[in-house]
Simulated scan of single mutants.
Amino acid sequence: MAYWLFKSEPSTWGWNDQMAKGEVGEEWDGVRNYQARNFMREMKLGDRGFFYHSQKERAIVGLVEVCAEAHPDSTTDDPRWECVNIKALRPVETPVTLDRIKSDPRLQDMVLVKNSRLSVQPVTGAEWAVICGLGGVAP
Rank of each mutant, 00 (worst) to 15 (best):
M1P: 06
A2Q: 15
W4F: 14
F6C: 05
K7H: 05
S8M: 08
S8I: 04
E9S: 09
P10H: 12
S11C: 05
S11Y: 06
W13S: 05
N16L: 15
D17R: 15
D17W: 11
Q18H: 14
A20I: 03
A20L: 06
A20T: 01
K21N: 12
K21C: 09
G22S: 12
V24R: 14
G25K: 02
E26V: 15
E27D: 14
W28I: 08
D29L: 04
G30E: 05
V31L: 02
N33T: 11
Y34N: 02
A36M: 07
F39K: 03
M40F: 06
M40P: 09
M40L: 09
M43K: 10
M43Q: 13
K44R: 15
K44N: 14
K44F: 10
K44S: 13
L45H: 10
L45K: 08
D47S: 11
R48E: 12
R48W: 12
G49M: 08
F50E: 10
F50M: 10
F51M: 13
H53E: 07
Q55V: 13
Q55W: 05
K56P: 01
K56E: 12
R58P: 01
I60F: 07
V61Q: 03
V61Y: 06
L63A: 12
E65I: 12
E65P: 07
V66W: 02
A68C: 12
P72R: 02
P72M: 09
D73I: 08
D73S: 04
S74I: 02
D77E: 13
P79Q: 05
R80H: 12
V84S: 03
V84Q: 04
V84D: 01
N85A: 15
A88V: 07
L89M: 15
L89A: 13
R90H: 14
P91G: 15
P91L: 14
P95Q: 10
V96G: 10
V96M: 05
L98A: 08
D99G: 01
R100P: 00
K102P: 00
K102Y: 01
D104T: 02
D104P: 04
D104E: 07
D104S: 00
P105C: 06
L107D: 03
Q108P: 00
Q108W: 01
D109S: 14
N115D: 13
S116E: 12
L118E: 05
V120H: 06
V120G: 02
P122Q: 12
P122C: 02
V123R: 07
V123D: 03
G125P: 08
G125M: 06
A126P: 00
A126G: 00
E127N: 06
A129G: 00
A129R: 00
V130K: 11
V130N: 01
V130T: 15
C132W: 03
G133Y: 11
L134R: 04
V137F: 00
A138S: 13
P139Y: 00
